[in-house]
Design a protein around this nucleic acid. Structure first.
Length: 578
RNA sequence: GGGCCGUUAGCUCAGUCGGUAGAGCAUCUGGCUUUUAACCAGAGGGUCGCUGGUUCGAGUCCAGCACGGCUCACCA
């Protein structure tokens, strides 16, 4: 144990005190780490079932209680005391009098520290201020906290410690636990939704010889006995469709995908994906299912159809909007100068920014000394004026955006800051250019749920082409709060078509696109046995949980988000390493 | 990897112009038999992230490094 590795001088005064008090507890004959405690109720149950009782009712009934929990606060008043303890969800008070418990219990009480676990036996009553409390008859020692808990009032704010030591975060910040309880409820609801409709939950390999089924760089590992390289899967897609070829008509999987990419507020290298596939359906069926499923979740988890997300509101009122990718570009053309505060959450809106700059200007303005401030202020004023009296600029039409030449022409009309985001303009094909344009012009504005349809074929190597226009595929993505939440399409089931699409991807790979998809011969063999018409969809669970629990960062909905290893630790956490 | 910001007691945070390191909670001692972030009186607790530099003197100014956050790039 690491405890023995610390000399006494390494410990701060509080940790030394706690070790001394543990020794004293042992001295007094208590088992310092007993195996179990039989409760009559959890603290949560006591509050749920008995908090409606009045003081008089409790005085008559004197409900007998045995309950266990962690000590949150101690108020000692000479020969009496209040202890607040918790089951991690709710706090409950214990009232203890030296003349009403045996000497052993009173001596134990004097050795307790915040964070220790105790069991209490007694009866329920209300104090004179009306607070539900357990009048203790005896205390049982259950476990020692050798490290003091974070501040009981201010909690634990240090973001690094919160993520690295999630246990301390959970002790200190009750709202964190609520987020993860909601996450659990969301996943439970999703499972029961699909189970009730006859989908079979399956598990497909997470270590795979090929990393394919999505556009991403994989993690690579090695299997010693077989002496082969394996990849952590970037998507379960091709395995799930093998199952449809094998005769399952409806399957779903909820599990982790791994992508070897940077970390951000919206990206964790491992993330949870729901994917499902259904035979004889098309993407219109999936639009209906998606709207239905997420509406149910919003209602169940948030209890409303308009919810708050940061400083914005998201309106889930049905039916949700639908725009083709080109329509979205046209719709948000000219809007790039101004994103209202409810579009950019947690960021200062333009108007506030101007006010701030005006204030700074008033306070510090010294002509000729504050050039940067002047310039910034001027720009903000101009943007604001433009937003208030929008110039009716020309917009592209659907036909303008139908050819590569048209796209290049309109991309060249973008403001420099957006245009510069689109690199290698010359080498990109029609589909990739349209994707870039959509991303720059429309995506940040997609706040309320909206289905984006009519994806170009070049961006969709697994999607069936549209029956009416082969430049596009029968695919949609659902956007909420500017984030891509779902991706769905009619699956290619013609093995010849799929082979051509894979080959196009391999050409991109040869030209240096290391995220282009890898050809999967076994998947093509599966298709050759015949796969019924099929539609499939993936939903990013972490991002959905972010929206439903109003969390800014994906790290706030993942219990142990990835961090750089701590100094002096090789980062394995478990201590088990090669 | 680039840019911006941050790192002070166990926790949450102050720290003015460069001049002996501060508060609340927590801890310790004493008091208090219905408290509510209990209260009252007293005490202990710091390598100011690390390494250099400037200076008579650095928590404060400068440089480098480490770690973190946000952001950009990549992506869902």
């Amino acid at each position: 144990m690491t405890d023995e590795q610390h000399s006494e001088t390494d410990l701060n005064d509080q940790m030394r005190e706690r070790r001394l008090s543990l020794d004293e507890i042992i001295q007094q004959g208590f088992n310092p780490y007993p195996h179990k405690f039989d409760s009559t109720h959890t603290i949560n149950e006591i509050i749920a079932r008995l908090s409606s009782k009045t003081g008089e009712e409790l005085q008559t009934a004197r409900p007998h209680i045995k309950a266990a929990g962690r000590i949150h606060a101690i108020n000692k008043m000479g020969k009496a005391a209040f202890i607040r303890f918790t089951d991690g969800r709710e706090l409950l008070q214990i009232y203890l009098r030296s003349n009403e418990v045996d000497e052993k219990t009173w001596n134990l009480f004097k050795l307790l520290d915040l964070g220790d676990f105790i069991g209490v036996e007694g009866f329920l009553f209300r104090t004179k201020t009306g607070e539900l409390s357990i009048h203790a008859e005896s205390l049982t020692f259950l476990s020692k906290a050798l490290t003091p808990p974070p501040d009981k009032y201010y909690g634990l704010h240090d973001i690094e410690i919160r993520y690295r030591q999630r246990y301390a975060d959970l002790i200190a910040n009750r709202s964190v636990r609520e987020v993860f309880e909601k996450r659990s409820a969301i996943i439970r609801h999703i499972r029961s939704y699909f189970d009730a409709r006859g989908y079979v939950e399956v598990e497909t390999p997470m270590l795979t010889p090929l990393a394919t089924g999505a556009a991403a760089r994989p993690f690579k590992t090695h299997h010693n006995a077989l002496d082969i390289d394996l990849y952590a899967r970037i998507a379960p897609e091709l395995y799930l469709k093998r199952l449809i070829a094998g005769g399952f008509e409806k399957v779903y999987e909820i599990n982790r995908n791994f992508r070897n990419e940077g970390l951000s507020i919206r990206h964790n290298p491992e993330f949870t994906m729901l994917e499902w596939y259904e035979a004889y359906s098309d993407y219109e069926d999936l639009i209906r299912l998606t709207e239905n499923l997420i509406s149910e979740l919003v209602e169940k988890i948030c209890g409303a159809t308009v919810i708050e997300y940061g400083e914005r509101k998201i309106d889930f009122t049905r039916p949700w909007k639908r725009l083709t990718m080109r329509e979205a570009v046209i719709h948000f053309w000219n809007k790039w100068d101004y994103l209202p505060p409810n579009i950019h959450p947690w960021e200062t809106g333009l108007r506030e920014m101007k006010q701030m700059l005006d204030d700074i200007y008033t306070i510090t303005h010294d002509p000729g000394r504050c050039a940067i401030c002047d310039a910034a202020r001027k720009r903000q004023s101009e943007s604001l004026a433009e937003q208030e009296t929008p110039l009716e600029r020309q917009r592209p039409t659907v036909d303008d955006l139908a050819t590569r030449e048209g796209l290049v022409e309109w991309i060249n009309k973008l403001p420099d800051n957006l245009k510069s985001q689109i690199s290698n303009l010359k080498s990109l094909d029609y589909g990739h250019l349209l994707g870039e344009l959509f991303e720059q012009v429309a995506e940040p504005h997609l706040n309320d749920p909206v289905f984006i349809t009519e994806f170009p074929v070049e961006l969709s190597p697994l999607s069936k082409q549209s029956e009416t226009d082969p430049r596009f595929v029968d695919r949609f993505e659902l956007f909420i709060a500017g984030m891509e939440i779902a991706n769905a399409f009619c699956e290619i089931n013609d093995p010849a078509d799929q082979r051509r699409r894979f080959e196009d991807q391999m050409k991109l790979r040869e030209r240096g696109d290391d995220e282009a998809m890898v050809i999967d011969e076994d998947y093509l063999r599966a298709l050759s046995y015949g796969m019924p018409p099929t539609a499939g969809e993936g939903i990013g669970i972490d991002r959905l949980v972010m929206i439903l629990t109003n969390q800014k960062s994906i790290r706030d909905v993942i219990l142990f988000p990835h961090m750089r290893p701590e100094k002096g630790d090789s980062g394995q956490g478990t201590g088990d390493r090669e």
